[in-house]
């Protein structure tokens, strides 16, 4: 199912505040270990990389492996020292990229 990524970032924060970010992407995470009804291997198709940057600076990134279940969910913290934009990207096997942005204010 192709739906928009869901991301939760507070609209504003105090300078230096540590905020919690949650992200959820709808994705099948086909592991490559399964076979279809005819016995043919279903090719692997997973999200293999997730990154979050703030004003171009890396905040959080990780590699995903086939054992991770469908609809990958991440929750992590970030310290906000200035207003700006969080950018989130998910990279799928084959190179397709899903991305979204969230702005945050200070004060």
């Amino acid at each position: 199912m192709a739906s928009k990524p869901r991301v939760k970032v507070p609209k504003k924060a105090e300078k230096g505040e540590i905020i919690t970010i949650k992200t959820l992407l709808s994705h099948k995470m086909e592991s490559g270990q399964r076979k279809d009804k005819k016995g043919n291997k279903i090719p692997r198709k997973i999200i293999n990389k997730f990154t979050c940057t703030f004003n171009g600076k890396m905040v959080f990134s990780c590699d995903l492996e086939p054992a991770i279940s469908a609809n990958p969910y991440f929750k992590f913290n970030a310290r906000v020292d200035e207003p700006g934009t969080f950018e989130f990207t998910w990279v799928e096997d084959g190179g397709a990229v899903f991305s979204t942005k969230k702005k945050i204010r200070i004060g």
């Binding site: 869901r6 959820l24 609809n71």
Partner: peptide, 12 residues
């Protein structure tokens, strides 16, 4: 409601 993956379908 955010953590609940069922909401992917609700939104759709």
């Amino acid at each position: 409601d955010f953590d609940n993956p069922g909401f992917l379908w609700v939104e759709q």
